[in-house]
Design a protein around this nucleic acid. Structure first.
Lengths: 223, 223
DNA sequence: CATCATCGGCACGGTGCGTGCCGATGAGCG
DNA sequence: CGCTCATCGGCACGCACCGTGCCGATGATG
């Protein structure tokens, strides 16, 4: 586990002088930091415009008015650059509400995140990263660690909370359920051409609730 | 729907003289057909050896002792070549038994197909195709049509049969359940670094059976 | 004001792409 | 049997991108 994290860190900050992680505002902000953020933005813009095909270090540099060296000094590969670029706009780790109604809370977040995942800038950048990762197991691990596992974890937190509240079957390990929920959404998004819409989310939640919802007592909070 | 199929056909057989589809033995077998099969095999071999990185038209041609033209005359892109190469060894559309025990039948096929998917030659070729597809929506549609949808369909057939046999809840649309089952497996395979082992399959089937298994009457055939 | 890391620009050899043009090969037909 | 012609392997082209090295300019630091 921590091995993955280490691989990730070395992948992204493999350069000798990586001043700071992306998305960290409190910094002395030498000349380099400003350029770093510009490059991340240029990467996202370019991914949104031309997609994975046509995405290259040279193209990013051209767009940002930057020499290739300036990019290579910061990231060892385009995969690392994409990883940081995506992180810089990946604010929502699925920020679940807890209204006392699991199904509604899951539905809201699934629909929201599916919209985020399928529209620029995150959508195209994510696709590019997935493509890049097919030839690089350590990048695959990094993506899983940094994005997928996070989403699964927050989902697991929410449904575990529901389980404690009596909304779901007690004494059942929900870890795998969280993976099934998130995995199905990502499967649709990244591997098929079907949209992730209300019917898909509802179908998924139907199965989830049929499996783990308390049969007779509808909601746990009110008793 | 049929639009996807048309796109697929044009993608694979876009050349003016595409004598026949791959994997069709009964043919006059001019000089070209033999080369075609050799090229498909060389593609699979190369994918198994070097993975997606290092896979190129030139490398395939070099390995097969073939000019690039010979490849381009048959397939318009490496994506089309990969698609045909994978089809030529993709024999099992999940060939479910019907022993009267859905869960056991699903489990057997899931474990079997997960092994096939993660080992050469199918594993690496599949990964290469997924990578290629991230920049090409029509290829994504082709993959879904040719492989994923097929797997989902045969799974749907099996569980629908189980539903008729009284093993599963009647009057429930299982179409989405089939997608969840297959999607979760492919999610693990292609997007994470977790292995698809017995525990994963069992966890998945736990959720499926909890959702749709008949609560009191264990199996339909025996009693 | 002096220093020096970082900058943009340029060029390099290497590789793959997709195409065009060869002369050789071999299958099918008369 | 020999002719014909599609297909073959080989080679070369222009283009693009890779990753690296070397410039002289810039601008933040002290």
């Amino acid at each position: 586990m921590s091995g993955m994290l280490h691989d990730l860190a070395s992948l992204v900050n493999g350069t000798p002088r990586a001043d700071k992680m992306a998305v960290m505002p409190p910094a002395p902000r030498r000349r380099g930091a400003a350029r770093t953020e510009e490059l991340l933005q240029a990467t996202l813009d370019l991914a949104a415009e031309v997609g994975y095909a046509g995405l290259s270090i040279e193209a990013i540099g051209r767009r940002a008015g930057v020499g290739k060296h300036t990019i290579y000094r910061r990231w060892p590969s385009m995969a690392a650059l994409l990883l940081d670029a995506l992180s810089s706009v990946w604010t929502s780790d699925l920020d679940y509400n807890d209204t006392g109604d699991v199904r509604a809370d899951l539905r809201e977040q699934f629909l929201l995140s599916s919209h985020v995942l399928s529209s620029p800038p995150i959508g195209p950048a994510y696709r590019a990263l997935i493509a890049e990762a097919q030839g690089d197991p350590s990048l695959r691990a990094a993506i899983h660690e940094r994005f997928l596992a996070t989403v699964e974890q927050s989902t697991l937190n929410r449904i575990t909370q529901a389980q404690r509240a009596g909304e779901l079957t007690p004494d059942v390990n929900l870890e795998f359920a969280a993976e099934v929920l998130c995995g199905t959404l990502y499967y649709r998004h990244l591997l098929t051409t079907r949209p992730v819409g209300e019917s898909a989310v509802d179908g998924l939640l139907d199965m989830f609730m049929a499996a783990y919802g308390q049969p007779q007592f509808p909601a746990g909070n009110g008793r």
